[in-house]
């Protein structure tokens, strides 16, 4: 039995057929089915004009931002195996990751640099969309979603800053939360709730940790889905 025969037999099994409900004969129908019978592929349009794949239309900046988001998710989850958001464990765990854990320094640096890069690429993506006029109707709502995603990127970056619990982290959050306090009316209350108290201590560390690892990434994931879906619905890149 050669490989092709084996493939034919596997593809014909009920198990295979239950997962992939169509054949792979090269027809328009099957090409379409491949995309929209798959939860991951269906975010993409069934057909993409060849012109819109030209690199210079988008410079792939949005895609790079998303790739960095995925890299940050993977490295972040791995870092969570060793990190405890408590005082003084947080700082020690960061040191342990840096100097003791195998690949810990690599993971931590990947996470840090990918975070810097993501903020940079999100900005560049926004600039590209602006300069190529891609925010104009019918895409104006997706621009708004993009602005929310930019804010989430910055908040993710900011909340991650406190977690190493070193001097840089402490004073950066001191300065940042005092800026938030300057907001009219809700400022002082917002700062109190954000820190879970009047000083940057254990409560603040746990709050920033939960925001950084759960709340903000989930919000970003939901908005990313909306963002990509709107790109698909609005027809992706069509040179104007």
């Amino acid at each position: 039995m050669n490989v092709l025969e084996l493939k034919e037999r596997v593809v014909a099994t009920p198990v295979w057929r239950s997962i992939f409900r169509h054949r792979y004969l090269d027809s328009n129908r099957n090409r379409a089915l491949t995309v929209f019978s798959n939860v991951f592929l269906h975010i993409h349009p069934v057909k993409v004009p060849e012109k819109s794949l030209r690199l210079r239309h988008t410079m792939c900046l949005g895609g790079l931002s998303f790739a960095l988001f995925l890299a940050l998710t993977v490295t972040g989850v791995l870092l969570m195996f060793y990190y405890r958001p408590a005082i003084p464990q947080a700082y020690r765990d960061m040191k342990e990751l840096e100097f003791v854990v195998t690949s810990g320094a690599l993971l931590r640096n990947l996470h840090r640099w990918a975070a810097h890069a993501m903020v940079l690429f999100v900005f560049l993506h926004m600039a590209r969309v602006f300069y190529s006029g891609a925010y104009r109707p019918p895409r104006e709502f997706n621009w708004v979603v993009g602005v929310l995603l930019l804010i989430l990127s910055l908040l993710l970056s900011y909340t991650g800053y406190l977690l190493p619990w070193d001097q840089l982290a402490f004073w950066a959050i001191t300065v940042g939360t005092n800026m938030a306090e300057a907001a009219p009316l809700i400022g002082p209350k917002f700062k109190f709730l954000l820190l879970g108290g009047n000083v940057i201590g254990e409560n603040a560390l746990v709050r920033f940790y939960v925001l950084h690892c759960v709340v903000l990434p989930l919000a970003a994931a939901v908005l990313l889905a909306v963002h990509f879906w709107r790109v698909r619905k609005d027809g992706g890149v069509r040179p104007l």
Binding site: F192, L193, G196, G197, N198, V199, G201, E202, N203
Partner: peptide
Amino acid sequence: VHPKVLFEP
């Protein structure tokens, strides 16, 4: 989210 007891100096 409003803490009821604070362990602050």
